[in-house]
């Protein structure tokens, strides 16, 4: 029984990482007052960009960086339409996702059967030999460690630096930002592009560290899950870790159960992670929404 539990928990972290990257990126964007439903598209294009760059150069780290850039450039389109041109944020985000889906199926065809040498898992000397905890926490790929470190890092920037203060002020009350002589529009654009970079990294983790292949539409709604988990995490990077690993846990648990032939149908089992996401939102959502940045209310809550 114990090896199974260890495998599930370790899988939870590995499969939750892609969502964690996207979720952290979305927190940055939403803290500045912009919702990006295009996170799904950014992840997808990041996954393909990283996979393609890894296949061409053989370097998965360079690949991940390219994936991030791909996500950032798609997010830049969203920044232009939704922030600079003030088009509807939610519609623009979805259009971005549809664009990402089209672009990746256009360029992705030639990579469908390609094989790559992805990221190896890195064992941390001393720690990875620990019983139980070692295999769960300390035998992962570099991007998984990066995501885990990024969460407190982003928390620090948001809450302990002037940059973070201005970013949060943009999301709470943009007049304040004007009054100190900064441009909320510029801050929002940068936040959205940063968020897209992280979503791209998340996609990269999926393709070059986790599955090691490219499949059309391989993110399967993980970007939307990330946007949902931002609400669960009350816009805090630290709680986002818990939310993402919880989603990862649901993913890896249902895979483990399927592999052992438990459960009525593989399709119904695959629906569990989405249902878990909806369920946690319902359970905590009402309380947590008080943390919502004020400028977002116009987008999300139209009074309801």
């Amino acid at each position: 029984m114990l090896p199974i539990i260890i495998a599930v928990l370790s899988g939870a972290i590995r499969s939750g990482t892609a969502v964690l990257f996207a979720c952290l990126g979305e927190i940055i964007a939403e803290r500045a007052g912009v919702v990006n439903l295009g996170t799904e598209g950014c992840m997808l294009i990041g996954a393909l960009g990283a996979f393609a760059a890894t296949a061409m150069t053989g370097n998965p780290f360079l690949g991940a960086f390219v994936g991030g850039l791909c996500g950032a450039s798609l997010a830049a389109v969203h920044a232009y339409v939704a922030v600079i041109r003030r088009g509807n944020q939610l519609a623009s985000g979805l259009a971005i996702t549809i664009l990402g889906l089209g672009v990746t199926s256009f360029f992705g065809r030639s990579f469908v059967a390609t094989q790559i040498n992805g990221m190896n898992s890195i064992s941390i000397a001393g720690l990875s030999d620990l019983p139980i905890l070692g295999p769960i926490l300390f035998q992962h790929d570099a991007l998984t460690y990066l995501a885990a470190f990024l969460a407190p890092g982003i928390w620090f920037v948001l809450y302990r630096t002037r940059w973070g203060l201005m970013l949060r002020a943009t999301g709470e009350r943009q007049d304040v930002v004007y009054s100190v002589g900064l441009s909320p529009t510029l801050i929002r654009c940068l936040a959205v592009i940063c968020g897209g970079f992280l979503a791209g990294l998340g996609g990269a983790q999926l393709s070059v560290a986790y599955t090691l292949n490219w499949v059309e539409n391989m993110t399967q709604g993980r970007g939307y899950v990330a946007v949902a988990l931002v609400i669960f995490s009350s816009w805090s990077p630290l709680t986002a870790v818990a939310g993402s690993y919880l989603f990862g846990g649901a993913l890896s648990l249902q895979l483990a159960l399927q592999a052992r032939g438990v459960g009525a149908s593989p399709f119904l089992m695959s629906a569990i992670p989405y249902l878990v996401t909806l369920a946690v939102l319902v359970l905590v959502g009402r309380r947590r929404r008080q943390a919502m940045p004020d400028e977002l209310r116009a987008v999300f809550e139209r009074g309801g």
Partner: peptide, 17 residues
């Protein structure tokens, strides 16, 4: 699915108004 690119671009163009 390539034409998905075209339809998404048209919508983005409309939204960018």
């Amino acid at each position: 699915s390539t034409v998905g690119i075209l339809t998404a671009l048209v919508l983005l163009g409309v939204l960018a108004r």
